[in-house]
């Protein structure tokens, strides 16, 4: 296994109390595999990724427990100078907003080249040549002429390609992409996702794709982990999630998105709001919004039940949920 996260716990200490952003998350990714982590804002999907990468703001954040095993080594017990050598070289991240993730006062060539200077000890001149190669590889037209341009001179889609190029530079074995296409237009989004998938295949990388978009997930993922209020509520291979979800939250999400190929009547809407992390409801965090909630859901936290070999659901009533008929 390339990456294995075990029972990760992350807290944020705020003036109003302790927010449990990640509350016992476990997942794994293998080489060449794409894991999609699906969730709404505040579900803990990005915080988990930041903890894996070691870029969490501490304080206010604190890793309260768990293990992050990367190629068998627990990163949470690794010294910072060691982690720095791994970060960027063997494990890289792509962020949502390319404009604010790139340095506005350095040319993109310098930023791409820096990877080779810092990690591989290349000369600036050689690094610049590698930067041009990389830009070619992510299909930026006229790379040679544009290598000295600054981030603001590129369009949103091109900037995201530069981010991808930077992540790919040292051919890492794992890439974490946090909402990589959310800020892009659909036609550009399709181009960027295709590029990412091609490069992943070519380099046989593990990919963790963090997103809230059920459509993007269906297009590229092998397996899915659905997060809610800091926990994984369901995990399964991609086909199962869409055909027969085993958690009422997943069911609700699928039913609440309008579809391009059909004109529905009323949309199904999950009632209520995502919980405040300072006041996560007792029992199952989803119970106040759940159409299936019973007494037990308000008192006991559901464990991740084994639905079958490859599927897990954190719902006491996963059997009944499997048989649910879609609202549409």
């Amino acid at each position: 296994m390339l990456l294995e996260v075990r029972d990760l716990q992350v807290e944020f200490h705020t003036r109003d109390g302790v927010a449990k952003a990640v509350n016992g998350v476990s997942y794994s990714v293998d080489a060449g595999e794409t894991l999609a982590v699906l969730g709404e804002s505040g579900s803990g999907k990005s915080v988990t990724a930041q903890a894996i990468m070691g870029i969490l703001d501490i304080p206010p954040g604190r890793i309260a427990g768990g293990e992050v095993l990367f190629k068998g080594q627990d990163l949470l017990k690794t010294k910072e100078d060691q982690r720095r050598k791994i970060r960027g070289a063997d494990m890289a991240m792509i962020f949502q907003d390319a404009l604010s993730s790139l340095n506005p006062v350095l040319s993109v060539g310098a930023q791409l080249g820096e990877m080779f200077v810092v990690h591989r000890g290349m000369s600036r001149k050689d690094a610049r040549a590698r930067a041009v190669e990389l830009m070619d590889r992510v299909r930026i037209p006229a790379a040679k002429e544009r290598v000295n341009d600054y981030p603001h001179q590129f369009s949103g889609g091109m900037r995201q390609r530069i981010m991808i190029a930077m992540a790919m530079a040292l051919e890492p074995s794992l890439i974490i992409a946090d909402e990589p296409t959310t800020a892009l237009d659909v036609t550009v989004q399709a181009q960027v996702m295709e590029l990412l998938a091609d490069l992943q295949r070519e380099l046989n990388m593990g990919l963790i794709l963090i997103t809230h978009d059920l459509g993007v997930v269906a297009d590229v993922a092998d397996k899915i982990a659905v997060m809610y209020a800091g926990r994984i509520v369901e995990s399964a291979p991609v086909h199962y999630i869409y055909k027969a979800p085993a958690h009422p939250y997943t069911r609700g999400l699928l039913d609440s998105i309008p579809r391009l190929d059909q004109k529905g009547r009323d949309l199904y809407a999950i009632k209520g709001l995502p919980p405040n992390l300072l006041k996560i409801p007792a029992g199952c965090a989803f119970n106040p919004r759940c159409p299936r909630a019973q007494d037990i859901c308000r008192t006991d936290v559901p464990p991740l039940f084994e639905v079958d070999e490859s599927r897990r659901s954190a719902c006491f009533f996963w059997r009944e949920t499997l048989d649910d008929v879609p609202v549409r």
Binding site: A190, M193, L214, G215, A218, Y242, K243, R259, L260
Partner: peptide, 9 residues
């Protein structure tokens, strides 16, 4: 270009 929420598609 719109992603369809259905892996079968």
């Amino acid at each position: 270009a719109v992603p369809v929420p259905d892996p079968a598609a």
